[in-house]
Amino acid sequence: MKKEHDKKLTRRTFLKTAGVAAASLAVSGCNGISEEFLQSHFREMGPDEINQTRERLEKQYKKKYGRTFHLGTEPADPGILFGYGLDLSRCIGCRRCVYACVHENNQSRMPQIQWIRVLRFKNGSRNFEESDHYYDAGMVPKEGYYTIPIQCQQCENPPCVKVCPTGATWKEPDGIVVVDYNWCIGCRYCMAACPYWARHFNFATPHVPADKLNTNLHYLGNRPRMRGVVEKCTFCIQRTRKGRYPACVEVCPVGARKFGNLLDENSEISMIIKTKRVFRLKADLNTQPKFYYFFSL
């Protein structure tokens, strides 16, 4: 098995080197660029290659931002399938989750990218087209309205993964849909396929002030992105793979956000599914989100 893998790698590396020789010649002046250009798909990297890539990127970030970063590449643990719960009878629409996410995941401040969108509805309405994305929160909650925050629903049957022409986005064994920013070609087909508007594209070079950067990174998560790639919520993979709650869960002032392992019957999310009325957004599309909205009241 291992031998075959090695063989495949060699052939791949060879073909790659030969196939793009002209291009690599053009950029051979700057070694880092050609290395980045010829980089393999994350899932095809051996441990050594992952290490090299990690070191290269850490160096690159240090040079660019003048700070020391830790770039994690932790794989998924077995026996874990992440699930998320959001208590709609508690959410007040204060948008603290939005900005906690922006800070934790190094989202571009200019142009602005936000992975969480909070929609405000008039009581009695549930049509997205009647929702308000740009409500001025003022003091919340506001009588006569309710809010639904929407982010990546981490579908078990993700249409974005199905349509990606290069396999740059995929579902990890623990259920998180991730993007290899170095493999994404930026065709934005996944954005057209996503029913939850959860994917965002770096139309311009993302800009985050160096002092605002979170230095605890994950390769598949919050590492600084480049222009021309798609990004999305990863359930804070840099935190959750190390056992911690996602940032939005911890920040929610009303405790509306819940997180846990769907395969553990004592986890918070399993208890919610067992004891509360839950629903999933756009269930008719059979995307099977692992993001459960529920009512505790």
Partner: peptide, 8 residues
């Protein structure tokens, strides 16, 4: 967004 990666 990344035409140079078209070889992917």
């Amino acid at each position: 967004g990344h035409p140079e990666r078209v070889w992917h």
